[in-house]
Each structure stands twice: as C-alpha cells, then as structure tokens.
C-alpha cells in the first residue's frame, strides 16, 4: 500500500435539500499512486468538485471511505490537511494581503516559523516567475498569475499530494499551456497531483491516468491507451436530424461496417472502424426515410469516443 497516495472506496455524498435529496457522488472508488498526475475527467455536475471537497476534508461523505496517505479524511482530518495542498476552483487568495503575504501566512498557518515561511515563500515566488510581483495586491493579478500564486501557496508546507479543482477553467489557451508546463515539471520532480477537469484535451495531454466520471461515479479508470482500448479503436459517426432518429436506427445497424448504432432523440450514433467507406451511404439513410440531415460529426478514437461508448451520450464540456 506504500505507493498509494489517495484511495476512495464506494464514496458517497447525498445532499438533503428542501426539494429532495441530491446525489452528488454515488459510490466512487479509485486509487491514485504516489508520483502520478491523476485526472478526474467529467462534464460539469459529474461530481468532481464534491469528490475533491471530500478528499480535502471540506465536505463530509455520507457513505464509503476516503484516505490520503492512509489517513482517513473523516477520522483524521488534521493529518490529511497536513499532507495536502489545495488549489480551489475559485480565486480564494486573501485580498487584504500582498502576494508574498498570502504565501507567508499559508506557511505560518501550517506551522512554519515566520522566518521559514518567508524564505519558502520567496523561493516559490522565484520558481513560479512571480518574484517581481511579491509586493503586489492580489486584486492586481491576471487570472493566470492568480492561479500560479494559488499553486505556490498550496505548496508552502511541502504537501505530499496536490489537489487542483478545475485549474485551467477560465484561462486563455496560452496561460493554460503554461500551467500545464508547471504541473508537468512538478510531476517530473516526484509530486503526486490530482486534478479535476472538464477539458478532454487537458486530461489527454497531461495526465498519467484518468478516471472518467459521470453522475457521481467512475465509469472507467486507467491510462489513456487502456481507456481507448476499452472502447475499441472505434470511430463514432454522430448524425443529427430534424426528426426522431429512432425510425432509421434499425436500418443503420444492418449496414456493412457498422458495429453498433444507437439513437436518442434527433441524434444517431454509428460505431465503426471504417468511417470513410460507410460515410457516403450513411448520410443517405435519413433523407431516404424523410429525415433531413442537420449535422454530421466524425469522432475519432479519443477520450470522447470512450465517453460516448460508456455513457451513450455526447460529451458536453
């Protein structure tokens, strides 16, 4: 077990509201190994933030267990808090303090002496190319700078595991790529990183292993290559019509080269390994049956096809 950094088993969170129970996480089990960059991928509302909230002791689970480095998040939250660094989804920097002070006080809250905290803060600001901004107010920072300050702040007390909740959401593409470089460097130095994201591209290009999450549970978990092989090297042809696609799905299933097909509402998905050779015939099926074709999309084997295969739904970012 020594190489397991984070573990959850049948983790659940149900919120009771006046309008009934909301099941945010419905039985989530996963294992993050030490030294890996682990991604929780899922659409908005999949339960990623609630999961990170439970792993970082901010949300109390209603079922199952979760631990960080063997310390249970409910029974021993203080040990967990000592071991983790957290970069929340929103800018929670202390607006009354400067950039340097934000880092310093984070270190002192965690038990560093004032002198040690200052030295560590200066080192981290240097490392994140924020040295010249040390005395700046946090309200003067751009989105990307604030995000780097938050990461630096989370690292002040040398955490064993760094959690980042949607770290690049709302950042421009260039800033996002810069942030990826920072995370890759940290991983190369041996940090364990857990990040949630709703960007498929981010999970694909950054993470060692990925847990695909929807409706509060893990649909699939593994390296990108494993995940792709789980759903097969299939391409999905996604067609949208002006009427119910159900009436042509039977006919599509009969076509040569179509492995499977499914319809929901006005959309139809055909799974195939030979997309080029069936596309021409496929687009004619609808019009022959009186349906106008509105949109055609070719989804090559990727996390997106994994998601389509697992959920029968298109991925919505």
């Amino acid at each position: 077990m020594a190489d397991v950094a984070v573990e959850t088993s049948d983790l659940k969170k149900t919120y009771t509201t006046s309008s009934g129970a909301i099941e945010a996480v419905t039985g989530l089990s996963l294992e993050v190994r030490r030294g890996e960059l682990f991604g929780l991928l899922g659409p908005n509302g999949a339960g990623k933030s609630t999961t990170i909230g439970m792993l970082t002791t901010r949300i109390i689970p209603t079922g199952g267990t979760a631990s960080v480095g063997g310390a249970d998040v409910v029974r021993d939250p203080l040990t967990v808090k000592r071991r983790i660094g957290v970069v929340p989804q929103y800018n929670t920097l202390d607006r009354q303090l400067t950039v340097l002070e934000n880092l310093e006080f984070r270190g002192r809250y965690a038990g560093l002496s004032a002198r040690a905290a200052r030295q560590r803060a200066l080192d981290l600001l240097e490392l994140f190319s924020l040295g010249p901004r040390a005395g700046a107010k946090v309200t003067e920072m751009s989105g990307g700078q604030a995000q780097r300050v938050m990461i630096a702040r989370a690292l002040m007390h040398h955490p064993e595991v760094l959690f980042l909740d949607e770290p690049t959401s709302g950042l421009d593409p260039q800033t996002r790529v810069n942030l990826w470089d920072v995370l890759r460097q940290m991983r190369a130095e041996g940090s364990t990183i857990v990040l949630s994201t709703h960007y498929m591209e981010e999970a694909e290009s950054l993470c060692d292993r990925i847990a695909v999450i929807d409706h509060g549970t893990v649909l699939a978990c593994g390296e990108l290559a494993e995940l792709k092989s789980q759903s097969g090297p299939e391409t999905v042809l996604a067609l949208t019509y002006d009427g119910e696609a159900e009436k042509i799905v039977g006919q599509v299933r009969q076509m040569d080269g179509v492995l499977r097909a499914e319809a929901s509402g006005t959309s139809l998905r055909a799974f195939t390994r030979v997309p080029e050779s069936i596309l021409a015939a496929l687009v004619l099926v609808g019009p022959d049956a009186g349906l106008s074709l509105i949109d055609v999309r070719i989804v090559r084997p990727s996390l997106e096809t994994v998601f389509l295969t697992l959920t029968g739904r298109e991925y919505r970012e």
Partner: peptide, 14 residues
C-alpha cells in the same frame, strides 16, 4: 463572495 476563508480552514487545526 470571495471564499477567502477556505485557505484558513485548510490549516491543520480543527
């Protein structure tokens, strides 16, 4: 609005 308190709550104390 700011949830600034979140960082202090992560300090290793109850």
């Amino acid at each position: 609005y700011t949830r600034e308190i979140d960082d202090r709550v992560l300090a290793p104390v109850p």
